[in-house]
Computed example of a mutant assay.
Amino acid sequence: MKKISSCYGSILILGRTNVGKSTLLNFLVKKKISIVSHKKNTTSSNIIGVYNNDIYQIEFIDTPGNIFSKNRIFNLLKNNQYDFILFILDKTKWSYIEENFSKIFSKINIPIILIINKIDQIKNKNILLPYINFLKKKINIFHLFIISAKYKLYTNDLYHIICNNLPKKKHFYSKNYITNQTDKVIIKEIIRENIMKFLHKEIPYLIKIKVIFSKILSDEINIIFLVKKINHKKIIIGKNSNNIKLIRNKSEQNIEKFFKKKIKLHIWIKIK
């Protein structure tokens, strides 16, 4: 029988909203495939990112931060189809959300890699040891990391633990596969992230984005923002068109960087 020299694993990323799941996913996949924002619920569906090298292939699944009811967590995990769970905590926050996760973890047979994120924001490091002792009583931890995903502090060791414990399997995806996101979705998410960066309050949630091009990754990409009110259109455009210029220019740069291709971005705003 031919010896399998490759390893493959599927890893689910869980945690509350704004805990840093998308930031960590982008780091692990070595590509920005998931929108990062301080605003709530920016990840609305499961996003798959795949890390590839000659030996190891790791499928990471980023989940929406609003999956924290016991039933939804249990339904997600009941088939034990994942090799690991990356459970991310926001500093030392612990509420009913984390409690629900911990109760479901006790009923499944999936190793838990626990990650305390945003270490850069914890000024008094003396609180960590009691907190870790508390966590060990709550969760059967396979391994624990204390990191800052945003600043890439203490993140590289994650690969060593994961890769050293992956099952020996043939790779599931092709070596060039990165994400389940289509080109249109990636473009839309890049633009949505910049809308959230340059506009405030509820406006980003009121914009529907349409991506139009004659062929995938054509040199010119046409974008339509659909809004309901003329006032929203004025806010998006901004004084002297400053807002829309910032959104367009930054989005254009991000899209070119992702696809490694020169493009021209055109944006129209229409009242729906």
Rank of each mutant, 00 (worst) to 15 (best):
F172L: 14
I48W: 03
K245C: 06
D120R: 05
Y82I: 05
I116T: 02
V185M: 14
I115G: 02
N71Y: 14
S37Q: 08
K239D: 09
P204I: 10
S5E: 15
L226N: 10
D157A: 12
E99C: 08
G9H: 01
L89V: 03
I127L: 06
W268G: 07
F87M: 01
N71E: 14
K234M: 08
W268K: 15
N53M: 06
I33S: 11
S148L: 07
K2H: 13
I230S: 15
I186F: 08
W268M: 14
F145M: 08
F60T: 03
E98I: 03
S5Y: 15
K210W: 09
T63Y: 07
N52Q: 13
H143T: 11
N117E: 01
N242Y: 11
I48Y: 08
H160N: 14
R248I: 04
H38N: 15
N71T: 14
F259M: 05
N18K: 04
S102G: 05
D157V: 06
I55Y: 03
N46T: 13
N66Y: 15
I97H: 09
S44N: 14
N180F: 07
K228R: 01
N109C: 09
K169L: 12
L128R: 03
E59R: 13
F105R: 07
N140F: 14
S148H: 04
Q181D: 11
L265D: 00
S69P: 00
I127S: 01
R72N: 13
N180G: 09
N133R: 11
F198K: 02
I221P: 03
N222E: 14
K272W: 13
K137C: 07
L128E: 01
E189Y: 07
K197A: 09
N242M: 11
K123D: 13
I263A: 04
N133W: 06
I11G: 02
I4N: 09
Y154V: 03
I55R: 06
K210F: 12
Y8S: 02
I186E: 08
K245P: 04
V29K: 02
K261C: 03
S106V: 08
K257N: 15
I236T: 04
I187M: 12
K201C: 09
S218K: 03
K270I: 10
V211Q: 10
T92E: 07
I61T: 15
S214E: 15
K229E: 11
G65V: 04
F225A: 01
K103I: 13
H38P: 12
C163G: 00
I108D: 01
N254Y: 11
E98F: 06
I97G: 08
I88S: 00
S10C: 13
N26G: 05
T42P: 04
V36W: 06
F74R: 09
D120W: 00
L199K: 00
K201N: 15
I48S: 09
S95V: 03
F105V: 00
K208M: 10
M1T: 13
Y154T: 09
M196T: 05
I161F: 10
I139H: 03
I263R: 06
I85C: 04
G9Q: 06
S69R: 14
I224M: 06
L206Q: 10
I209G: 10
E202F: 10
W94L: 00
R192W: 05
K107I: 12
K32V: 02
L217H: 07
L89S: 05
Y56N: 12
I73A: 03
K103L: 15
Q57R: 02
K40D: 06
S251Y: 07
S44W: 08
